[in-house]
Amino acid sequence: YRRDHMPIDVVISPEREVAEAALRRLKYPAAFDSESFLEDEAQLMGLRLEQDCPVLNTPLRQLNDLFSTLRVIVLAVRREGRLFAPDAGDQLFAGDEIYAFAPNEDVPRLLEVFGKTTKRQERVVILGGGNVGLTVAQALEERGGGIRAKMIERNRASAERAADALERTIVLNGDALDATLLNEAGVSRADAVLAVTDDDKTNLLAAVRGKAEGCPLAISLINDPTLIPLMEPMGIDAYINPRATTVSSILRHIRHGRVRGVYSIGDAEAEVIEAQVLSTSSVAGVHIRDIDFPEGVLVGAVKKGHEIHKPSGGLRIEEGDVMVIFALASDVPAVEQLLQVSIDFF
């Protein structure tokens, strides 16, 4: 069963993908969703806008004028359950969930503009010591940074396995819904509680209990996308959708053109695609304003060499550039067509 003896090109580990998503949520606690692009030099961030957001009721066009040096693009807005690509004249309202794209250097300012604060996560309680929880705990130990983690795992054998595999993480055997055990784990003093058991309802309830005990940030693993609308009423700050995370990894390998990354948003409602422009692509040598994008498509960034550019109508796309593109699911085939080798090549 050696890999070089088997005709398999790519192996995808759902547990590893989900664990990486959990680590991103911990890194950006103000975001309910996040994904890295452009070799980890830029971030897609899902932010829920509250009443105190300083840019509510402001047209996006005006935001570009107010913060002209800020390389931030609002790629999508979810309002009353509907996801759409906003126009320059659209305003943002309290309760909106937006997906904003920015290079890493601009992320702190992005969070500030939308009324979000950043706080270093130093104490984390992980609820669930299965493959996902164990992988997260191991990654936190490997990365250092002074993060102290505790874990609660119901199954004794799994708890013992986790305890043997971890060096600095305290593992407690018991029910993640047990208030006494949560107190013993110090959830009231924790900066974040991460509920990653194999049961959605347990994750939701455990995250709620963690918040009730005083933890400021609750992140829950949710397999069933129909449960995601319950997050906000229950006070859960962020979620991890294993299906979307794993689908994104698969799409990266099956999308046409020189696609380097794909992230699936929501219940496969849209995709954010990172792709390199080929010399024979129909977008090569064309200004962004002249590219025939469908209505539900927006460009989030263009990387030329080592520099990430904020897209504008006058920016010319060249061979070798890397584009980050948001597309509603119905528009993905059209984007693929634009990124593929031109028929003239043959």
Rank of each mutant, 00 (worst) to 15 (best):
E50F: 02
V113H: 08
Q62C: 04
R61I: 10
G95M: 02
E105Q: 14
A76R: 12
N104V: 15
L56S: 06
T118S: 14
Q51D: 06
T69L: 15
P86W: 07
T117A: 10
L66Y: 13
L75W: 00
R78M: 15
N64D: 14
Q62M: 12
R71N: 11
R109K: 14
L92N: 03
E112C: 06
Q62K: 09
P59M: 01
D52Y: 06
F67H: 15
R79Y: 02
E80G: 05
P86C: 11
F93G: 10
L70F: 07
F67A: 01
R61E: 04
N64A: 13
A94F: 03
P108L: 06
L66K: 06
G81S: 01
G81K: 12
L60M: 15
P54W: 04
A100F: 04
F101R: 01
T69W: 14
G89H: 12
T117M: 05
N57T: 04
R78S: 14
D87V: 13
L75V: 06
V74N: 05
A94Q: 01
R71P: 08
A76V: 11
G81T: 00
V107P: 10
G95R: 06
E105P: 04
K119V: 12
R82E: 15
S68C: 11
T58R: 06
K119T: 12
D52F: 07
A100V: 07
R78N: 13
L111C: 03
V107Y: 03
G95D: 03
G95F: 04
F67K: 08
E50S: 12
E112V: 06
K119P: 00
R79A: 01
E80Y: 06
R120N: 15
A88W: 07
A85V: 03
E97K: 09
L75F: 05
V55R: 06
A85H: 11
N64W: 12
K116N: 06
I73R: 10
E97N: 12
L70K: 08
G89L: 12
R79I: 03
L70H: 08
T117E: 14
